[in-house]
Design a protein around this nucleic acid. Sequence first.
DNA 1: CGCTTCACG
DNA 2: ACGTACGTGAAGCGC
Length: 892
Amino acid sequence: MGTEKQKVLLIDGNSIVNRAFYAMPPLTNSTGLHTNAVFGFTTMLLKVIEEEKPTHLLVAFDAGKATFRHEGYSEYKGGRQKTPPELSEQFPLLKELLHSFSIKQFELSGYEADDIIGTWTRLAEEQGQTAVIVSGDKDMLQLASDRVTVLLTRKGVSEVDRFTPEAIAEKYGLAPQQIIDLKGLMGDASDNIPGIAGVGEKTALKLLAEYGTVESVLEHAGEIKGKLGENVRAHQEDARMSKQLATIFREVPVERTWDELRWEGYEAAELAAAFRKLEFKSLIERLDLSGAGSHVGEEAKAAADYEVVWAGPGAEREWAALNEALPAAESVLIEWSGDNPHQSLGIGLAIAAGGRVFAVPHEALAGDEAARLREWLADGEAPKRGYDLHGAELALARSGYELRGHAFDVQLAAYLLDPTEANPSLAGLLQRQGLAPIAFDDAVYGKGAKFRVPEREALAAHLAAKADAVRRLAGPLAEELDRAGMRSLYYELEQPLSLILAGMEKQGIDVRSQSLAELGQEFQGEIERIVGEIHRLAGFEFNIGSTKQLGDVLFEKLGLPVVKKTKTGYSTDAEVLEKLEPFHEIVRLILHYRTLTKLQSTYIEGLLKEIRPEDGKIHTYYRQTIAATGRLSSQYPNLQNIPIRLEEGRRIRKAFVPSEPDWRIVAADYSQIELRVLAHISGDEGLVEAFRQEMDVHTKTAMDVFGVQADQVDAGMRRQAKAVNFGIVYGISDYGLSQNLHITRREAAEFIEQYFAAFPGVRKYMDDIVAQAREDGYVTTLMGRRRYLPDIRASNFNLRSFAERTAMNTPIQGTAADIIKLAMVRMDEKLKELGLRSRMLLQVHDELVFEVPPDEVETMAALVPETMARAFPLSVPLKADVSVGTNWYEAK
DNA sequence: CGCTTCACG
DNA sequence: ACGTACGTGAAGCGC
């Protein structure tokens, strides 16, 4: 290191970007990306570099999500508003720009930027070097020392105030370390740190002048007079915790050496290219970069390297060009608004072809000029690469358009590559692929009530950017699918299934509103009677549906024992109420009230609202890219949770009927598919043998766990064995099983041990799959579906345990999902092949529901279970039970 | 908009 | 010592 004087410039990335975002006027580049915060950050950066002339440089970021501070205090940074998308889309731009500046950046999950900066200032001090911090956060002042200077932004980001220990003493009369005490006393509304109620900056400073530290203030709390003294005494814990929250952690594992932060300036050509992309023309001039790197191909090009053509109503030339380009279309993007594509409002579409992107507003689809486009969209031989083609198909159907020829769906591919990704938006996918970014939808359209479609120019730019994004993503994602061994899972299972789902959804299921309404009448009468009873027993009227009011009645008015608490108050869930039943007759009524109001609001009223008046049917929307295990999910409404367990609710199913006279409902469900999958995957001999002999698996489990003969297994033993089997599938823990069976943990552990002794192959599977997950970072299903489990290596017990249970469960649940999906594809083929009129209507995880003409009932009652059973050969037989009825209730 | 509760597999 | 059973969606409450 020599004797050279070194100075590290440490920038609080999140703080500066935030300040810049709110201080700068809006600014977008030609593709609609917001850039104002990046611009503000850059001007600040250039200025500080010029003034401070650092030898080392680092920008630190918060790693997002939870930090270790949340573990002790879940409200930390509570009331803070969410980052608007106009800002969040700028982070990747900034990170890329910093890269072009050759500036190091660092973030670490579990830590905030100030902790990283605090750690580096400590390291600088230890090495006898100096540090300069740039932030907008006053907390940083605690780090000031004779070697560390803090620059706090003022008025946005362009100007800074310089804080040395002397300057802090002058301004606050405090030493840097006392900044933490200051915050401990006064709190910080923006971080949701409470401090002592009623204590603001003035009072806090007075107290510190007298006592020096929070601890000393608290020690002398007894001598502080009046209201202030009361407050101090009442909020001692708040003060201690607030001080702790405000204290910057200076021992972050920073994973870098001092020398790695060395900064030797930027590469002019690289920076020029980055500025061009962002369209920061003034900065290019200011740094005199206009000559730099303009010859270097791709990177130096402007943001969009395609021409946007607006094919609006009456734009004859543009339509002619579009029609001509259609055969060469590389991607298509259908844009609509609303969450439910069955009820969507069209926005428009865009088609990328040969260096141009044609943007078509939705209105234009109604005109004659769209005839060729209509044909092309419906042409199964014209391949479409798109994003969410399933949703697009439904949305287009509303405008009388068909969509055929699904060739590749970027959203579906992205789901297979990482089914846990919360935001598989095009903008998000580009970020993760390291491709040139586009604006997030929320930033273009606004969110919720603020949603509005922008004017022509901005809309065209965004639609074009998205269509181009599909074009750019399709190749890389397809290659990734190949590399991950999911090519056939995609092309032979998921993509064909997406078409089948769209067909089922468009078909819909007939639901008799008359039957639902009559049942609702009945429920209503019963609910009113029960409400009266409950209010009479309580002695006054209250809202039974409010857990807060109900808790007051049960635990304060009636004095029932508190069984469990939630983070907001008393728990009143069914488990708690069942325990309370013996204490008061009101409890049973409340349970019944809950059941009935659930049925009434979710199933009677909820389903009635979803029946389309045009055809009397319900059209659900199956989501193929939501569940992390590979299952489908169902929305608007959810038809996968229609009541069945209790007779009262089961009657709802009588309203689900065939849509043609004399047709029948045929339903078939897999018997014990998950345990059969487990038998296959684990190869456990006992379990495999049990299924080969078609034994009752819960009875078999009871025999082996309790060590008895079949005829000695009573109902209670079978019930317990069944719970153990559930536990095994879910990734067993003694705690979970004990909760479920209301037994002690020790007893539960005993059961589990017995189980594993009886089924050693299952134990081996559980051990192996966890080890494998730790090794690979992911688990797979029989058909190669993947789920990443980053927490499997976490040091946090909770996170790690959760990941371990997921590792055990996902291959089982996921393989079952694979199998029924495959059965759906096979059934669809069979129906076509045999020319049957029967229609597949619903999938409920292990069940398929059809409507069937009378002359096909016999055929289908054999074909469906057979097809399901043969969908995917395992080492144990798969079995599906079938039943027929005039409605879904009867088909049981 | 987060929390609680409860419907399903 | 740690403290949850796996996967979903919808409704009502109350801030």
